[in-house]
């Protein structure tokens, strides 16, 4: 069976600047992989390339989900195929009501799957239930998407979306940054609830701490647009101890 995600020798540029310089990564169903790496090493760029953001041009290699190349798919098609990106910097949408946004997202997936659109009342109940678990109150749900949310609240809201969309592959870009200790626990619990033999996750973080909560199967170090080292979760401790000094990114 094809792996859930296979990244083959991926090269990508932003504008004319090459950022990703040959990434190879295979994630099997059910696995959690963590990516660490210095600032500017290309972690967010990789997450955008996976999600299909315009302007992030793949100049070589391939991205396959369940054996099918995603390169020709637009961002919305990838999302409906089960890809989810929790943004490092979630985007404010003034004037776009949170509830109608969440409903549009969930309905887009349901329509793709040939299911009926969600019942409005049941949806509100469902959102409330999941939101309560994540410490998101009704007032936040009523506001425009991310408008007036604190940094930590935005991160929780990303996980709420993830919980509602039940993605096959979740890419979490520094979801732990900006979270207080309690929120980190709440958000991690939310993520762990979605752990499932059929789903996989790619967790980008700077801190080993997160990986105590969301325990990864593999840890990779990205530097200079390439994965320089891979290992088990002990690699995260090594990074925490000695930084990235020992990682060779000259290549």
């Amino acid at each position: 069976m094809a792996p859930l995600l296979e990244i083959r020798d991926l090269h990508a540029s932003v504008g004319d600047t090459p950022i990703l310089k040959g990434i190879n990564l295979t994630i099997n169903a059910g696995e959690i992989h963590a990516i660490m790496g210095p600032n500017g090493s290309g972690k967010s760029t990789m997450s955008y390339v996976l999600a299909g953001r315009e302007g992030y041009e793949v100049t070589g290699g391939d991205i396959l989900m369940n054996g099918v190349s995603m390169l020709e798919m637009e961002a919305d098609e990838r999302a409906r195929a089960g890809m989810f990106l929790a943004f490092q910097y979630p985007v404010e949408l003034p004037g776009v009501g949170g509830m109608s946004f969440l409903r549009a997202a969930v309905n887009a997936r349901r329509i793709e799957a040939g299911e009926d659109e969600v019942d409005q009342l049941e949806f509100v109940k469902l959102v409330r239930a999941k939101a309560t678990h994540l410490g998101i109150n009704d007032d936040m749900l009523k506001r425009a998407v991310n408008v007036g949310f604190s940094g930590g609240e935005k991160k929780r809201y990303e996980i709420l979306q993830m919980a509602l969309l039940e993605p096959v592959l979740s890419v979490l870009d520094e979801t732990d940054s900006g979270l207080d200790v309690d929120a980190l626990k709440i958000v991690s619990d939310g993520v762990n609830l979605l752990r499932d033999p059929q789903r996989s996750m790619l967790v980008i973080t700077h801190y080993q701490r997160l990986l105590n909560h969301i325990v990864p199967d593999y840890v990779h170090i990205l530097a200079g647009g390439k994965i320089r080292r891979s290992g088990g979760k002990e690699l995260a401790f090594e990074v925490e101890e000695s930084g990235y000094a020992g990682i060779d990114d000259a290549a």
């Binding site: 999302a79 985007v91 949408l93 776009v96």
Partner: peptide
């Protein structure tokens, strides 16, 4: 805004719907 459009489409919302959501928000003001 490209970033706003990407945020919406990254949630599975098709481009046309995403655009009209942003235009509606703009006019609702």
């Amino acid at each position: 805004d490209d970033t706003q459009l990407f945020y919406l489409t990254s949630r599975g919302i098709d481009r046309k719907t995403a655009r009209s959501m942003l235009i509606t928000a703009f006019l609702d003001d």
